[in-house]
Lab assay of single mutants.
Amino acid sequence: EAEIKAARERAIVPLEARMKQFKDMLLERGVSAFSTWEKELHKIVFDPRYLLLNPKERKQVFDQYVKTR
């Protein structure tokens, strides 16, 4: 159900806005820029903003977040 709702939101909200919300979530959840995606996943997986991006986009935004922190 959450994935269906997220898919609707992905269709409406522009990618750039969704990427910003995802980055904000990473900051708010205290995701370490010195860790790996796999180790940090448990901090963010239950946040509704996690589903704003598809899996490939999530990883790309995380990688970008790590490089710029």
Rank of each mutant, 00 (worst) to 15 (best):
E38R: 06
W37V: 03
M19L: 07
L41S: 09
V66M: 10
T36W: 03
E1V: 06
L51Y: 07
Y50C: 03
A11R: 13
E38V: 03
R10I: 15
W37R: 02
R69D: 04
S32E: 13
I12K: 11
M19H: 08
L15H: 07
K43Y: 00
R8V: 06
T36A: 08
I4T: 07
F34W: 11
A11Y: 08
G30L: 02
K39I: 11
T68E: 15
A2P: 09
E9W: 04
H42E: 15
I12L: 11
D24G: 06
P14H: 04
Y65A: 04
E3T: 07
M19D: 02
T36H: 05
Q64N: 12
G30D: 10
K23M: 07
I12N: 10
R69G: 15
V13F: 08
M25P: 00
S35A: 12
T68I: 07
F22E: 00
A2K: 15
K5H: 04
A17M: 07
R10V: 15
A11N: 08
S35H: 05
R49P: 01
S35D: 05
A33Y: 06
M25I: 00
I44N: 02
F34C: 09
V45Q: 11
L52D: 05
W37F: 09
K5Q: 09
E40N: 03
E3G: 09
E38D: 09
K67T: 14
P14Y: 05
Q21G: 05
R29F: 03
Y50D: 00
W37Y: 08
V45P: 01
K56V: 13
K56T: 13
V66Y: 04
R49C: 03
R58E: 01
K5P: 04
A7T: 09
I4L: 01
F22P: 00
E38N: 09
K43P: 01
E1N: 03
F22G: 00
E40W: 01
P14Q: 06
M25S: 02
A33R: 11
N54G: 13
L15D: 06
N54F: 02
A17F: 06
R18I: 01
M25G: 01
S32L: 11
L51V: 11
K20F: 01
K59G: 09
E9V: 09
V66F: 09
L52G: 07
V45I: 11
A33L: 10
K43I: 00
Y65D: 02
I44T: 07
F34P: 07
K67Q: 11
L26T: 00
E40M: 03
V45H: 15
K59D: 13
L41D: 04
R10W: 07
K5F: 10
F22C: 02
R10D: 14
L27T: 11
N54R: 11
D63Y: 07
R49E: 00
G30K: 14
L53W: 00
V31M: 02
E9C: 01
K20G: 12
T68P: 09
A6I: 06
R10L: 13
A33W: 14
L41E: 12
E38T: 08
R29K: 15
A11H: 09
V31G: 00
S32A: 12
P48T: 10
T68L: 11
H42Y: 04
K5C: 14
S35F: 02
G30F: 03
D47G: 00
S32V: 05
R10P: 13
M19T: 08
K20E: 04
D24T: 15
V31Q: 00
E40C: 05
R18Y: 03
A2L: 10
R8K: 15
T68V: 08
L53P: 00
A2Y: 04
V31W: 02
R8S: 09
P48I: 04
L15W: 06
L27E: 15
W37E: 04
E40S: 08
R69H: 15
L26E: 00
G30S: 08
R8M: 09
L51N: 06
K59R: 14
F34G: 13
L41P: 00
L26P: 00
L27I: 11
A17N: 06
Y65T: 05
R58C: 03
K20W: 04
R18S: 03
I4G: 06
P14C: 05
V45A: 14
N54K: 13
F34E: 11
V31T: 02
